[in-house]
Structure formats: structure tokens, C-alpha cells
Design a protein around this nucleic acid. Structure first.
Lengths: 364, 364
DNA sequence: CATTTCTGCTAAAGCGTTTGATCACTGCAA
DNA sequence: TTGCAGTGATCAAACGCTTTAGCAGAAATG
């Protein structure tokens, strides 16, 4: 299915200027061999510490010394060529800089890949399809071991055709109508954890401000909220759930609605919403957590940890998504049952929910 | 200077499991040649669109058709091997996920690299020296065209020895005692822009809350502040400058000091500090910008754009740092004069400074 | 008609490695 | 003496591609 275009303008495009290397020829294996008075084969065996190779102690030392002397470095390109496959793992991201989220996925993937002797090849597509296609082409041309296809927020996605040419794992996204491997956060579990933080503090009337925009997170977190209430024996009151745009402005604007509801606690769809909500509540002269306990979602460090008071929230496991993606790709982890692996969202408790007092629920 | 260790455990470590490739042999150039009834040389010439190659129209079409039919993809590994140098650019970062900053550097570098037909090899070291060394080794083994060595905040740095084995550019950091190429933000210019925002609004008594921790930013922004005042004909009053820890808590804690100073505006070392300051001012019943105009620094989108009111600030050119780093590395840009290139920090004006009124300065 | 020029294509050397086959020894048992 | 095993190291063929020199035939030139 290789298009003509992708051949005329492959990732490595001949119309670009040549990659003029540094002056001074790099030391090759042959030079080491000559220097040590042995054959290249011997050098190769020594360098790779081949288990079943029979090399005399003297020779080995001579080779090693020469290597150090000459400052020889193995040429990974040649190595890869001969072995037919590289130690690259491609990571295609739709947004690298917009949020810290993608950064954490990269970080996790990179760490895990490194552990297994692999190296990350990163491409940022900004959601641009042609760019994405080129990026994948380039990775395939470099004979990557596989590709991680990641999105910065949890959502369903199409699988680009070119991906099928190699092993791949969807990260933070999934393909509804295919059995492609995927790793995503467990939104239901997250919603439950968030709600549980409040339930544990004794709150019985807990509002949930959900997002206005449809997403797995919207449905999942709501489900988690309901599950938590049910486990706590609290009846679900649809009146306590309403929507707002998931950012600071949305949170601020939701205050009025919220105060109509006679609740002691609120679970916000995300931290940004909680940040706006803080402003609104304070402006009303209300105190957090005394007048209103607040829980967010995402654990955006820059915000959550430094709000006043610091915000209790639930962490999206972005780092783990990246790492698990790599493990899945390499076959280190096997998906249990469904090809879509769900990762837990751990709660992060801070001061926005107040001291642990169960009295509140007893004096309504 | 290759250490024995780095040879026994190079980036591509033989102790790791083999990179088992996908089943089904990938299509090679030879197969295309056979399919089209020509020589591999011809295929190569067609694929690369060689300018001075004389290929008949019929043959060319036949080759192209066969390529499509077989789904042939050039093998970049082989290509690189033969050309002696790859189209990789290495990016070593000390923190990829801590802040969005590193993400933007990566983004800029990746975009620019891509433009020139290069691909980014990313390594995250988290400031760990051995990891850093391994990362650089691995890049050298892959015969990268050069390495971008980047830090997440602007600071002086040592140059790892291994870097000298290739071309490199320091990004967001610099080496005081060497003439290494570097790109950094122009802190002085940034400080000046920030102050100018306030000056333009007519403020004359402008405080500057600097950071407690030493950094090029601390000195530079102060200098910029002084420059701006001088240009505006405002005498510098050392009493209006004091320090706070550069985060939300620091900003909050600085309010008391600030209010002692009888100023109408304040320039905060960074956006996080401004965020805390907002809380403190509001708690005092003061209004922004009416009672106090506020300017930040960094333009951390998640925060600045969504504070209440949205925060005027100065953007750190992280994306541009990455892009400029690549251009410098590839020799597309030449440093003018000093090897340390300074990039402007553009002001981003929002509502925290109030409407444009010059009256204030006329009625002191 | 003999020569030169041009056109279209191919052969083959090489890029830096890996690796299975092979070789020259030295002992040692038969 | 022959045979065989073990040791230490080498040979040479790949891996998939680029690139230069060069060959055969057609067309243009004298």
C-alpha cells in the first residue's frame, strides 16, 4: 500500500542536504583489528563478549587495549543492518507540548524501552494526518521493532493503515472495532477513587461536575462516581450531577449551580475545573474544605499541588501508560483477556477535603 | 576515551533479548528489481529520483509499479550505513515530564529536524550522570548527525566529555568556560518586556519579586527590570525589589511584604508565583488589576491563560529554543558573534494589567 | 561508411558488522 | 603412526543499499 508520494518523499528525503559528518574518520572495527594484529571477527567476538567464542586471555586484552587506545565505538547502523532489525521503538504522539501529559507518556516509554535495550524514536504529529503518515513511514523505514501510537487525552481512534505493517500498541486511546492492543487509564476506577476520598471523609451529599464534551472519561468517571456512592450506601441523586466545560472558566461558572444543590462536597471532572471552582467559591466567601470539600482529577502537578489549599485529586497514570505500552509491545506483558489493558488511577490526597471527620454525615 | 564499561554495556546491549522482527520478510530492493526485470542499481536510481540518471520512461514506470505492487519500503538502516552518517539528531534532556517546558523544546526540535529530513532520538536522563553517559554513547553509536543537550531551566552546565565526539549544541543552558554553541532565552530582554507592559499602562511604582535561588534568570530579569525603568525615566528604587521562593507558596507569602511598599503594580519572577500572589491579594480583598496590576513570566499556558483575571506574562521561547538548536547544529543558522545565541521572550498581554490608561501616572 | 556522442542500463565494489564454516595447532588415547 | 578432541583464531559470505565506471546499441556527425 505504499503510495507513490511516500516514495518520492520518504522520511529520509533525498531532496534534503546531505548529512555531512564530522571531520576525522570514525574508528572502525577493522582499524582495531589491524592495531591489535587480529582479524575483525576476533574483535567482534571480543566486543560482544560472545559466550561460546574461544579467545585467548592475551588476545582479548590486546583487543580491549587497542579499542580504548583508538576510542572505538561500535557502529549501530551496521549492526542493525546485519541483524535485520533495529533496537528502535517508534512513538507517534498527537501533541507533545500542549500539556505535560504527552511528556509523561514519552518519559515512561523511554525509561521502559531503555531498560530493554531499546531507543525511542519520537514523532510529533499535532494531529496532522499527512505528517502522521510520514512519521510512520519514516519509522517503518528505520525498521523499528514496533510503534506506540499515543494521544494526549483518552479517546477512541482510527488506526492509520501504515501501522498495520508493524507491531503496534495504542496508548491512551483505543480502537472500538478492532482487537488492537491498547493501554488506557481505568476511568471508572478513577471516578470511584475520587468519590471515595470524599465518602471516606464522611460526606453524603456529593456533587459531580462532569465535562460537557463526550469522552470515555466522561462516562467512566460518572460510572465510578455512582459505583462509589452505591458501595457507600448513598442513593444516587441525578440532581447532583451536572456539566461544565472542563477548564478553569467552566469550573468558575459552575459555582452558582453548585451552590443551589446543598452539598458539602464536589468532585470535579478535572483539576483545571477545580481551580476555577476555587476562585468562585472564595469569591462567595466560602472556605475550602470547611464549607465545601473539593476533589479534582488528573493530578496536574503544577496546579493541584500548589493550590490553596492543595487539591486532592486522582492521578492519570501517564508515565505508566507509556511504560506499559512498551512492555506490551515487546511481549514482556501479556494482556489478560481483553486486548485493552486498563491502568489504575491512584488517588492523591491533599488538603482540599479537610481533616478526617465522620461527624459531618451524622449531623446533616 | 571509550571506557570498558561502555563497551560491555553499550546502548544496544547484547545481554538484552533479541529484537525479534515481525514475521513475513520485508520486501527488498532486489525483489523489486527482479519483479520489474531490471537491476538493483536501476531501482535505486528510480527510488531516489537521481537527477543525472538516465532512465527510460517505460522502465521507470515499470519499477514504480512493481514497488507499489510489492509494497516496498527503502531500508533506512542500509541507506545510512552506506552513506556513513545517519539522519538522526540526538536530544538529551534532563527532565522530560516535570514541566511542559522540556516538551516544548522537544516539539520545536522535532519540527525543525523534520523539516531538514532528520529524525529525533530522544533520551531522558533525569539528571542522572551514568544514564546521561549511556544515552550519549548510544547516540554516538547510531552515528547521529549531532546532539542537542538540553536542560529544563536556563542554567550553566558542564559539558559531558562524550559530547565532544560529535557536533553538539547546548539548549537552554550554556557552558561558562568554553565556546560551545548554545541557545538560551534572553532573560534581560524578557525582564524588560515584562516591566514595559506595566510601564506602558502608566505605572510608576512597580515592584519586582525576584527568585530566592540564583540563576541566570534571576540576574537577567532584574537587569531587564532596571533597564525598562531607566528607559521610562523612572528611578530605580532598591526597596521595591525583594525575593521569594519561585512558586505559588512563595507568591502567596510575598503579599504582606508587597503591600508595605505602596506600589500599583508588580512583576513576578514567574507565573506560579503570580498565581499564589493572586490568592493572597484576593484574600486581602484587593482587586486585580484595579488595586494591583500583575505580570508574570514563563507563560505557562495551563496557568496563565486561565487565571482570574488571565495573567499578562512573558513567554519563554522553548519551542524556538529547540528549533534554533537544530538549525545551529545543522549549520542552517550561524551564530552572530558570541557562540551563545539569545532568543527573545515575547510579551503576552492579558487582563491582569487592566485597561490601557495613562492617567494613573499623571495623578500620583 | 567510420566515428563520435548520447541514451539506457548493469556490474561490482563497498559501507561496518555478524556468524557459521574452516583451519592450523597441540595434546592425548588408541 | 593414525585418529580425534579441544583450542584459538581466521575466512568469507551475507545484510540492503549507493554509486562509479563502463558497456551495448542507437542516433547524430563528418
Amino acid at each position: 500500500m505504499t503510495s507513490e508520494k511516500s516514495l518520492k518523499e520518504p522520511g529520509v528525503n533525498p531532496s534534503h542536504p546531505p548529512a555531512t559528518p564530522r571531520t576525522s574518520h570514525p574508528v572502525t572495527m577493522r582499524e582495531v583489528a589491524e592495531g591489535a594484529g587480529v582479524s575483525v571477527a576476533t574483535v567482534s567476538l571480543v566486543v560482544n563478549n560472545k559466550k561460546d567464542a574461544r579467545i585467548g586471555a592475551g588476545t582479548r586484552k590486546r583487543v580491549l587495549d587497542t579499542i580504548r587506545e583508538l576510542g572505538y565505538r561500535p557502529n549501530a547502523l551496521a549492526k542493525n543492518l546485519v541483524s535485520g532489525s533495529s533496537r528502535f521503538i517508534g512513538l507517534v504522539a498527537d501533541a507533545i507540548a500542549t500539556t505535560p501529559f504527552a511528556g509523561q507518556i514519552i518519559h515512561g516509554a523511554q525509561d521502559e524501552a531503555w531498560k530493554h535495550g531499546f531507543v525511542l524514536l519520537v514523532a510529533n504529529t499535532e494531529g496532522d494526518e499527512p505528517v502522521e503518515k510520514d512519521a510512520i513511514s519514516m519509522m517503518l523505514e528505520h525498521k523499528v521493532r514496533g510503534i506506540l501510537y499515543s494521544t494526549w487525552f483518552h479517546r477512541p481512534t482510527e488506526i492509520p493503515a501504515a501501522l498495520q505493517e508493524t507491531d503496534f500498541v495504542l496508548v491512551n486511546c483505543f480502537s472500538p472495532d478492532s482487537d488492537a492492543l491498547a493501554v488506557v487509564p481505568d476511568e471508572v476506577h478513577g471516578g470511584r477513587e475520587a468519590t471515595d476520598i470524599l465518602v471516606r471523609k464522611g460526606h453524603r451529599r456529593i456533587a459531580f461536575i462532569n465535562a460537557t464534551i463526550p469522552a470515555p472519561a466522561k462516562d467512566g468517571r460518572l460510572q465510578g462516581y455512582r459505583d462509589a456512592l452505591e458501595s457507600a450506601g448513598i442513593a444516587f441523586d441525578p440532581n447532583l450531577v451536572f456539566d461544565a466545560y472542563p477548564d478553569q472558566e467552566g469550573g468558575y461558572g459552575a459555582v452558582e449551580e453548585l451552590l443551589k444543590r446543598d452539598v458539602t462536597a464536589v468532585f470535579c471532572y478535572n483539576d483545571r475545573m477545580a481551580m476555577g471552582l476555587y476562585d468562585g467559591l472564595k469569591q462567595q466567601g466560602l472556605s475550602i474544605p470547611d464549607d465545601m470539600a473539593v476533589v479534582g482529577f488528573d493530578n496536574q502537578e503544577v496546579i493541584a499541588a500548589h493550590m490553596r489549599p492543595p487539591l486532592s485529586t486522582v492521578a492519570l497514570p501517564h508515565y505508566e501508560l507509556g511504560a506499559a505500552g512498551v512492555r506490551l509491545l515487546l511481549g514482556v506483558d501479556e494482556p489478560a483477556g481483553s486486548p485493552v489493558v486498563k491502568l489504575e488511577c491512584p488517588p492523591v490526597e491533599r488538603d482540599s477535603v479537610g481533616p478526617n471527620t465522620l461527624t459531618r454525615s451524622r449531623l446533616p
